[in-house]
Design a protein around this nucleic acid. Structure first.
Lengths: 118, 118
DNA sequence: ATTCCATAGCTCGGTTGACGATATATAGCG
DNA sequence: CGCTATATATCGTCAACCGAGCTATGGAAT
């Protein structure tokens, strides 16, 4: 699961949202780092609905415009929880590796002949 | 950055490794979940070297077979640290959303007429 | 008045990156 | 003799993300 997909599920975890609301929520959840493009959003929404991780909650007509609300399904919440665990585990493993990373080895002290002695 | 790429960088963080060694290390780091295929590995290795995140450390000839060791560059280590931070933040944000998730609402108590009164 | 921005939805084509399959080659084990 | 492990590499496919573009309304700014 990629980042946009993960964040869409996360956005829907708290409450049902319509497309534009998801974009706003994801922007918020990602500290402004992830701005979902329409292609990404609707592609993911179709895919996730097909997989049963999300479902259409309801459709509202507000001022002539249609608002389609999506809701996270129970299996979607499960998938999200699994993914959160993965992220945690990966982050920890990587940090442990970085801790073992050899830093700048000082080596033998360097003696520079400045030509001062003659 | 996707999971395989992230794990390759993580594997190289502790010490230089050759291709097959990376596969073993990634398997270990991911609790046995991620088994890198050759296509993924060598594709990623080429890409990461091109981006300057990794570099060829040395080449050894062991029993006629070539072993090409890769090493994480400083910018690669930086990229990995940034990514670890991202993962942490995403996991936390998603968990907070899940905490806000409405559970099973009990609703009004159900009164069932069993037909016992008459 | 007109332009711009925010809200709100959607389609299409391109690119990236992961994946599966396949190939090659050696060593060791059963 | 075949299987497994070690070791590297290529090819074609596919999923997913991205950018660009389109339609539409309402309010604010120019």
């Amino acid at each position: 699961m990629q980042e946009p997909t993960f964040l869409i599920l996360a956005a829907l975890a708290a409450q049902p949202l319509h497309g534009y609301g998801i974009v706003q929520s994801v922007l918020d959840l990602s500290s402004g780092e992830v701005a979902l493009r329409p292609g990404t959003l609707y592609g993911a929404l179709d895919r996730l609905a097909e997989q049963g991780l999300i479902a259409v909650d309801r459709e509202e007509a507000v001022e002539g415009r249609l608002r389609r609300y999506y809701r996270l399904s129970d299996s979607g919440a499960g998938a999200l929880r699994v993914e959160v665990g993965r992220l945690r585990q990966r982050a920890e493993a990587a940090e442990e590796q970085l801790r073992q990373r050899p830093g700048i080895v000082p080596g033998l002290p360097m003696i520079i002949n400045t030509g001062g002695l003659r």
